[in-house]
Structure formats: C-alpha cells, structure tokens
C-alpha cells in the first residue's frame, strides 16, 4: 500500500516527456514504443464509450422505440422534456440527494479516515471490516436493506418505537431517508479510504510542533488535519456529486422511484423513459442532460484545482 500512497510530487506527464534525457546521454527514442501500442485499447474504448457519447446526442433528436430505425424529429424530445414535471422534479431530487449525501458522508468519513490512519493494530482490523460494504454490489446491498426494512418481517416491525407503523418506504420522507442512509452505508468506506490515505501523508512534524505549543487533540484536528486534507475533500466531494447523479440500482430496487414519483431522480427517470416506455429519444435527451451536468462539474473542478494537480491526485491516491 505504501507505494501507491507515496506522494507523486513530480509532474507526471504522459508520453514520457518527464523522461527525456539530457542531450548526449544515449538515444532517447531507441526502443520506445510507438503509439500503435495504444491503438487496440483506444479503439475498443472509443467504440463503447466515445462513439455512444456522440450517438446519444444524435439520438436525442430522433424518435425510436427499439424496433426499426430511429427517425429524426428535431427538437420534439427536448420540448417535451422542458414541459415534463417529473423531469424538473427529478433534477431537484438529484440535487437533494447529492447535498444530503455530502452532508452525511463527509464529516463521518473524515473522522473515520483520520482515526483509521493511526498505526494501532486494532484500527487495521476494524478498517478491514469497514470496507466490506464497499465490495458488495449495489444490487446485493439494496436487496439486503429492502429485506431488513420489510414492514412485516423486518427490523421496523421489531422496533416500532423507532419506526412507527413500519412502512418506512411508504412515505417520501421515509424513502429519501432510507436511500440516503443506504448510500451512506455503502459509500462512506470509500471516502474513508481517501481520507485515510491523505491523513497518513500529513508530516508528523506538524503534530509534534503543535504538541510542543500545547495544542490538544481537538485543536490539532482543526488547525492541522483539516487544512491538510483540503485537496482530498475536494476530490471526495466531486466523486459524491458524480456518484449521486448516477445513482440507479439503489433507487430501482429499494423504491422503484416511488412512492409515486417521489424518489424518481434523473438517472432513474432516464431508465424509465428509455427502457420502460421505450421512448429512446427522450431517454437519450435525459442522458445528455446527465452528461452535460457531470462534465460541467468536472470542468469546474479542473478549473478550481488545476489540471495537473487533479491528475496527480488521481494517480497518487
């Protein structure tokens, strides 16, 4: 683990520019692979990710029900989308999910990550258990929680002082609370991992100096740990935004978008339009909205944090 956690301070440039030898130290281009080596993977990736990304834009101007060929219909899907109350609601719900996800997961994962960064043996064992939810499929997690929260046979029936009539998923507030909680259960370990890695890199000299100055643990946390984790907080929050925007399985399995449409977030609305109503044109338009929003967020972050920094934090994590 230590090798990947090591900070990569040198600007890691692709294409080997950081490995150019000074003149006279042997032919630098001898034995170097051409970009042909990169072609198979690039073509494969382009076929399933980049071309479809362009195709989704084209399909959003067509009408297609899955049979026959898509027909060009101009802006019809887009006009319908702007008049669709469920679409507008889904965007607000997505925003709500993202904000609640950040608010619940960030403080917890910082606290756990900093705690788990300590060297004590019991912490290593506990963190091994913490990471278990991260390994499980969203499908398994959602089915598990749906069973645990079953109104008749689940935990709510046994703890009626806490859950009332037990039909937790029957109200909008309850359903949203469950989705946020299950998201927290599933993804806090991941963000904990980010903070754990970052906290291990904080130079211990800082803490020693603070101790000498008489700063207590709490003071050290707020004056040293938190400011040092700033970059990780940015990374983690971005991932929560993108992750929240694309949450799908959990909604499908736990609430099916309901009750009614009250947990139909944008990604789930896209699935319903395309694969339940077989309106692939509208589905593509919604997909494009998702792409635009997540790209806009990515660009905003790249502008905020600097491209190279972003890249090295990706690699060095």
């Amino acid at each position: 683990m230590t090798t990947t956690l090591a900070p990569r301070r040198r600007p890691a440039r692709p294409g080997g520019t950081n490995e150019v030898r000074p003149a006279g130290r042997g032919g630098s281009s001898v034995g170097r692979p051409g970009f042909v080596w990169a072609l198979p993977a690039s073509i494969f990736f382009a076929l399933f990710a980049l071309v479809p990304l362009l195709a989704v834009a084209v399909l959003s101007f067509t009408s297609w029900s899955g049979l026959g060929d898509p027909k060009f219909v101009g802006l019809k899907n887009w006009e319908a989308l702007f008049d669709d109350p469920v679409m507008l609601q889904s965007l607000w719900l997505s925003l709500l999910f993202i904000v609640l996800g950040i608010v619940t997961q960030t403080p917890l994962s910082i606290l756990l990550g900093v705690w788990a960064a300590g060297n004590q043996r019991n912490r290593a064992i506990l963190s091994a258990i913490y990471f278990v939810p991260l390994l499980l499929s969203s499908a398994a997690i959602s089915v598990l929680w749906r069973a645990l929260l079953d109104p008749n046979f689940g935990i709510p029936g046994q703890l009626s002082w806490l859950f009332g009539d037990g039909n937790v998923l029957g109200t909008q507030t309850g359903a949203i609370a469950v989705l946020i909680f299950v998201g927290m259960w599933q993804f806090t370990p991941f963000h904990t991992l980010i903070y754990q890695g970052a906290a291990r890199q904080i130079p211990s000299v800082l803490y020693q100096a603070a101790s000498i100055d008489g700063a207590g643990t709490v003071r050290q946390f707020f004056s040293i740990t938190l400011p040092q984790l700033k970059n990780s907080i940015v990374t983690s929050v971005i991932l929560m935004v993108v992750g929240g925007l694309t949450t799908f399985e959990t909604v499908l399995i736990l609430t099916n978008g309901g009750p009614g449409t009250s947990t139909t977030i944008t990604a789930f609305h896209m699935y319903q339009e395309a694969f339940r109503r077989f309106d692939f044109g509208t589905g593509s338009a919604i997909a494009l909205v998702l792409v635009v929003i997540s790209t806009a967020i990515s660009f905003a972050v790249v502008r905020l944090s600097g491209y190279d920094k972003m890249r090295s934090s990706l690699e060095g994590l």
């Binding site: 440039r13 692709p14 294409g15 080997g16 520019t17 150019v20 630098s28 281009s29 170097r32 692979p33 051409g34 970009f35 080596w37 990169a38 690039s42 990736f45 399933f48 990710a49 980049l50 479809p52 990304l53 195709a55 989704v56 399909l59 993108v242 925007l245 694309t246 799908f248 990604a267 896209m270 699935y271 395309a274 692939f280 589905g283 593509s284 997909a287 494009l288 998702l290 792409v291 997540s294 790209t295 990515s298 890249r311 990706l314």
Partner: peptide, 26 residues
C-alpha cells in the same frame, strides 16, 4: 512513447473516467 498521440490518448482516458455508463446506455 514520445509521440503526441500517446499523450492525447492518455488525456482521452482521463476524460473517459467521467463518462457515466447511464449516459451511453441507449
């Protein structure tokens, strides 16, 4: 590789990280 194409491809894959599967599923 020292070719510009290789570094462009690397940037492309970095960009690819941000493409959600839902976006291209249709």
């Amino acid at each position: 590789s020292q070719s510009r194409a290789a570094s462009a491809i690397f940037r492309l894959f970095l960009l690819g990280l941000a493409i959600p599967a839902q976006a291209v599923i249709v």
